[in-house]
Amino acid sequence: MPATTKTTSQLLFNGILSENPIFRLALSMCPAVGITTTVMNGLLLGVAVLFVQVFSGCTIAAIKNHIHPRIRIPTYTLTIATWVTVIDLILAAYLPDAYKQMGIFVKLIVAFAIITMRLETFACKNTVKSSFWDGLGMGLGFLLGMMTLGFVRELLGMGTLFGYDVLGVRPLLFFVLPAAGFFCVGFMMAIFNYVELAYNRSKTAKQS
């Protein structure tokens, strides 16, 4: 495959909308279900993933000509694991409270299918610059997905946003219960599907 011809903004929006990692590709859903009880958690883990995605994408794009094809996958894994360790150490040192909340999920970024997938399909064939924008788009897509879920769950479950009281009551405590993460992701996906179906229907109606 030749290097991408897409522009920067196309690369950026590709990750945020049409290939949103959580709602469209249905990859890396464990943290989307597990820790989106507050917006803050979603934001922080999103930032961590963004960091790993961008840095490993750039690293692989920079050294792509020196990677022997037979050790391609081990190199990817090593790169991702290194950057995950770096962000894990930094978060543990400078944001200990938030780190405690996210628990094991920061370390588990290493097993995220989305990052390996982008390295395999994009970064190893493109320049550092376009890999950077692609990683940024994918990371932002993940971050926004996490924040949306966190927003819905925190607002409906606790009546707060970023820890500040907004509604004054707790409308549906159910939403902060751990199991509700599954329902939230399910409903969100259904909404995305609905929009897509409606869009396609209107397009075909216009054409005929």
């Binding site: 022997h68 050790i71 190199t75 290194t82 360790t85 150490l89 930094i90 543990a92």
Partner: peptide, 29 residues
């Protein structure tokens, strides 16, 4: 030999990166 050297080299670089970050953050932690 080429595969082994490149793998060893990347492991070493990764180790150095992680080690230095660890040393830098440990005190702050």
């Amino acid at each position: 030999i080429r595969i082994t050297t490149s793998l060893t080299l990347s492991c070493l670089i990764a180790g150095v990166v992680m080690g230095s970050v660890f040393i830098l953050t440990d005190k702050a932690k």
